[in-house]
Design a protein around this nucleic acid. Structure first.
Length: 367
RNA sequence: GUGGCCGUAGCUCAGUCUGGUAGAGCACCUGGUUGUGGUCCAGGAUGUCGCGGGUUCAAGUCCCGUCGGUCACC
């Protein structure tokens, strides 16, 4: 019996709408997962997350193993109880930190210098699985090696094969039956490597498969062709998760190619930097033209920020460094992206996904 | 009243001794940020150098005067 299953509800071309079932409930797909690296989506709380329509969130193995530690979280009842979030959680394995923190990598694993105190931290694929079993998310990810692009083909190939080896070891180490383990496809923007990685990863029998190593420096076109090359090799009855992707065009492109799940720091990070995502394009609320603007961030948005506050007020909060600015903009940006994928789900079910994409882009480009 | 110090970008100031394309930090204006260190990065705009006169090829800088601020003393 699988911890996590996915079933299709509708398809439109390659795009698919479906339902992901997890130990902590169901998630409609395509789904966008806000990022809560340290067991917190920055600036908001779980009430806010429910209010903006988030059904599943993401946390991070590397950060949580260091602070406060996986054993402590396990003692306190696991991630869900620890952070008071009773819906599905997915944890990233620390693979992205292999990209962003540049640890020493061997066949055995990765050796980090802790970002908190500089101490040496080793993380093997087995460690990542064991730690995630302690943390207790609904979905755990295998430790992978995410390569920044552009990179030499040899480097991409070496790390893709290493990721496959690690995937195999991860499955071997995985014991919790109430937790799913997802494999991760690598291969950069090389179509043959992508296809091979996808085939081999799929053959290992994961309950779901992620496509990683994208949005790390390649062009949108390269990303899309790499995505297609991978997706066609994946089993149609398993969820497909594109890691780290979260700009409007990227999401629509990936959904059109059959992707089901996404996460990205864009909405939350940009919010803390004063940038608002809207149906007519994104902008920095700091701009002087908004000084006396009485309109909401987005006329079409129904979030609690847009229903109550003007651009002029939000600009003031951002400029003064008021903490509420982070929360209010984060609520709005998450609402925008979650509404975007909700619209995609609806359009797929109605057989109108292409029309939806055209409408979203047309409105954005007119604004 | 006498003496000292100060007056340069929106703000705080460097540059004056030893004349040679007017600067920095902050603030301001744009843009960037993709499996997160609330950062950071990259560009940009900004000046009657208090005012007047003099010396000089050339004055923010040297000289004279003057205005304003400030401190000390009487």
């Amino acid at each position: 019996m699988s911890a996590v299953t996915w079933r299709a509800l509708a398809t439109d071309g390659e795009a698919r709408a479906g339902m992901l079932s997890t130990p902590h409930g169901e998630v409609s797909t395509p789904a966008f997962m806000p990022v809560g690296t340290k067991a917190a989506v920055k600036a908001v709380d779980t009430d806010d997350l429910h209010a903006v329509g988030a059904e599943m969130i993401l946390a991070n193995t590397y950060h949580l193993m260091l602070r406060p530690g996986a054993d402590l979280i396990a003692d306190l009842g696991g991630l869900h109880e620890f952070m008071s979030w009773d819906r599905p959680i997915l944890t990233d394995s620390g693979g992205f930190q292999i990209f962003s923190l540049e640890p020493e990598i061997t066949d055995e694993g990765a050796v980090f210098s802790s970002v908190y105190d500089g101490s040496t931290v080793e993380l093997t694929p087995e460690d990542a699985v064991r730690i995630q079993e302690r943390l207790g998310p609904d979905i755990a990810m295998v430790l992978d090696v995410c390569v920044g692009l552009p990179a030499p083909r040899e480097e991409v190939e070496v790390q893709m094969r290493r990721t496959l080896q690690w995937a195999d070891r991860s499955l071997e180490a995985h014991t919790r039956e109430d937790q799913a383990l997802f494999g991760i496809v690598q291969g950069g923007v090389d179509l043959d490597l992508r296809a091979e990685s996808a085939r081999e990863t799929a053959a290992l029998g994961f309950e779901g498969i992620a496509i990683g190593g994208l949005s790390v420096g390649e062009s949108a076109e390269e990303r899309n062709t790499a995505l297609t090359a991978a997706v066609v090799e994946l089993p149609p009855d398993r969820p497909r998760y594109v890691m780290g992707l979260g700009d409007t065009d990227g999401l629509l492109d990936a959904i059109a190619r059959g992707a089901d799940m996404f996460d990205c720091v864009i909405p939350t990070r940009l919010a803390r930097h004063g940038r608002a995502l809207t149906s007519t394009g994104d902008f920095n609320i700091n701009r002087v033209e908004f000084t006396d603007d009485r309109s909401p961030l987005d006329d079409e948005c129904g979030c609690s920020t847009c229903s109550r506050y003007t651009r002029a007020y939000l600009r003031h909060l951002v400029r003064m460094g008021e903490l509420s600015a982070h929360r209010l903009l984060t609520i709005h940006n998450l609402t925008y992206l979650l509404d975007l994928v909700a619209g995609a789900r609806q359009a797929i079910s109605a057989g109108e996904f292409e029309i939806y994409v055209a409408a979203v882009r047309s409105e954005r480009d007119s604004g």
